[in-house]
């Protein structure tokens, strides 16, 4: 059992690992990627709920296939592609998954949520001559707010804790995100538990705070 309480672990973690710089990089990625991702997912989900059944079925099937492919299976080819594009050792590959809504599952969740809205509602919007974009923004999106809250939180957590992508794409210490900096911290001395656990706490807190804020929305609302 530990003998004394002290905060030296935190100080050492911050000094040794360059965690401040890494935190800023992580924040930068999250600020760009998370809103973009939720936007892409909700737009796509809405379009799927409103497009012709045949188009929808094709895209849903493609999404399920994309969902089937484990992230690790795409490591090598994605790396080859980003290298070909000259985008390795930048933060772009860490933001790129936002175009997929971070996970096709989130697009499908939005699709199901928008499809579950009453058909009368969409008919009324047609009668009112609202464009799809306006229907999405002013009518449909406010009605699925719990979904948005939940998916935003999950997207943030996935983006914030993304370890594999930075591990592969980023070599420059100045571009390290928090998970990657944490890994190099633990490599310095794998038995120095206070230091790297302090780093782990620093990396965990933002994710937990976002969760605590959002979970009331998607866990505690009783109908």
């Amino acid at each position: 059992m530990p003998d004394t309480l002290s905060t030296t672990g935190y100080q050492r973690a911050l000094d040794l690992g360059g965690l401040l710089r890494a935190s800023l990089n992580s924040v930068l990625v999250a600020v760009v990627a998370v809103p973009l991702s939720v936007l892409v997912a909700s737009l796509a989900g809405f379009a799927l709920a409103r497009l012709a059944p045949r188009t929808t079925a094709t895209v849903v099937a493609a999404s399920l296939v994309a969902l089937m492919v484990p992230a690790t299976a795409l490591l090598v080819p994605r790396f080859a592609i980003f290298r070909f594009l000259g985008l390795t050792d930048t933060l772009v590959p860490l933001i790129a998954p936002a175009l997929l809504g971070t996970s096709p599952l989130y697009v499908l969740v939005y699709y199901l949520a928008f499809r579950a809205l009453p058909a009368d509602l969409y008919d009324a919007c047609l009668v009112e001559d609202l464009s799809p974009l306006r229907t999405w923004w002013r009518v449909a999106l406010p009605l699925v707010r719990p979904v948005t809250a939940g998916l935003t939180a999950l997207t943030f957590v996935l983006t914030w804790s993304n370890f594999l992508d930075p591990l592969i794409y980023v070599y420059d210490r100045d571009l390290f995100t928090l998970p990657l900096a944490l890994r190099s911290l633990s490599l310095l001395d794998p038995t120095n538990f206070p230091v790297f656990l302090a780093g782990a706490v620093i990396a965990t807190v933002p994710a937990l705070v976002v969760f605590a804020l959002a979970q009331r929305r998607f866990l505690h609302h009783d109908d």
Binding site: L43, A44, L51, S63, L74, L99, W136
Partner: peptide, 26 residues
């Protein structure tokens, strides 16, 4: 319909660029 397709477009780009093309490259 064109607007709906545009709304779907970013996701389709992601689907093709980040899943389909890498799968073919593999």
């Amino acid at each position: 319909r064109r607007q709906l397709v545009l709304m779907l477009a970013p996701y389709l780009v992601g689907l093709v660029g980040l899943v389909l093309v890498p799968a073919v490259v593999t």
